[in-house]
Amino acid sequence: MAIFGKLFANLRGGKVSSADWEDVLQSLIESDLGAANSQSIIEIAKRERGESSEIAVKAALHSWLSEKPRAIAKSEGRTTTVLVVGVNGTGKTTSCAKLAGLLKRNGESVLLAAADTFRAAAVEQLQTWGTRLELPVISGAANGDPASVAFDAITKASGASTSYLLVDTAGRLHTKSDLMDELGKIRRVIEKVSPVDEVLLVVDATTGQNGIAQAKLFTSSVNVTGLILTKMDGSAKGGIALAIECETGIPVKFVGTGEALEDLSAFDADTYLSGLFDS
């Protein structure tokens, strides 16, 4: 496991003062883990303190990670459908393109569906990525019904035995019930042809405590199966992802770390957890 840096130098020694604990608490809060969550991590660590306080804190954080599989779903013999959802501006379209690139590099055939018919030029944005990736993109009319785009895409993907269909959807705030219903409809319409195997919620690493509400409400409308944590190359630590994992059991599957197509990698727990304390 990676070393947590100088913050833990004091914790590694025998005596740990309450000021040292206070420092750890503050960095946890500043990583967006949440005030109450950070407090309970410290309490667990203090209680379980075995070999050293440093190990105890790491163990406490580790115990909050989801135990669900972190690999992307794959169904044999039919198209694996992945729905990409999230609030506005988290990086859904970019993540969709990166994921398509990753799958393509692994030798899978991929079809992209531009079901964000709402935001101006979102379809063109995905099409541009499609051209760069040399992957086909299914799209519909601007301001058209996103469910019909999704339906066309799954019909085509199933017919051509494409291994993955990635459906990019419009950004929506989780509090807008009509837009959340629209998302449910997209899922139902796809499932008339073939099951949806994976619903990935794109969460921006800069997101604060609101991320928990996002995860809960998106789950209740389309049953989220995994997270893509984006913009991890910035100064944000993305502590909200651990809070979401702990609260909902939804695992982070991918991490976005830049603007280039290759900047998407599988989630690595150790890198992520030690990142919470980098300053």
Binding site: G208, S235, I240
Partner: peptide, 15 residues
């Protein structure tokens, strides 16, 4: 700034 931003608000705003 996105109203949903967390603790990073300060770091980014300063930058």
């Amino acid at each position: 700034v996105d109203a949903m931003v967390g603790q990073d608000a300060v770091r980014s705003a300063q930058a």
